[in-house]
Nucleic acid binder design. Structure first.
Lengths: 95, 95
DNA sequence: TAAATAGTTCAAATATTTTTGAACTATTTA
DNA sequence: TAAATAGTTCAAAAATATTTGAACTATTTA
């Protein structure tokens, strides 16, 4: 279930998460995908180090923009579409 | 006329502009206003220095989130609602 | 014309974000 | 069990963003 009633702090966390070229690339990449993909695969597609990937995925997750699903030693990641949908339709209410 | 076809760089500029507590306060303040107000008045309402105001208004304007209208020595500012409307309805296309 | 007001610009100081590489944990494969 | 793989954590370095105050321009008011 998607979170309702965001605070301004939540909003800022979301905007900060979106306000970086690597993270926006990740978002765009995940958007045109319709399955889960591992952090490693995505990191390779973005051509970033695994440390950098780890950092950026954490920020995206903490903003609620992706969901993460660990299987054994791999972490699979996909867009949290309900967050985007909710946020885009309740933008002014949530600021 | 509102800009169509944003690049990823434009998007990042917009997200960065929104990703700051003072600027988000300004946006919220302007949103519940329906007339133009001067930078000075807004700055006072936000309790920030005029230098800081000048800096933040510039970032908001360069992101296309506000429009500015100079009368004599004062600058009047209001939300650029078409930008918000367009962006919120074309979010995925514009990333 | 002098003083006051609205806002800008600049450079320095401060704060925050991002990158980097090495060392680490947990899991899988040989 | 040893080696390899996926990802995390940490602290230092580098890059960016924000704040500050002083000096500035342009306009208005006394």
């Amino acid at each position: 279930m998607t979170k309702q009633n965001y605070t301004s702090e939540d909003s800022i966390k979301i905007f900060k998460a979106l306000a970086d070229p690597i993270r926006l690339e990740i978002i765009k990449y995940l958007n045109q995908l319709n399955h889960e993909e591992s952090c490693g695969e995505i990191g390779q597609a973005m051509d970033i180090s695994k440390t950098s990937g780890s950092y950026h995925f954490k920020i995206l997750q903490e903003a609620g923009l992706i969901t993460v699903h660990k299987i054994a030693r791999e972490k699979y990641v996909k867009l949290d579409r309900p967050t985007f949908d909710y946020y885009l339709t309740h933008f002014w209410q949530n600021l």
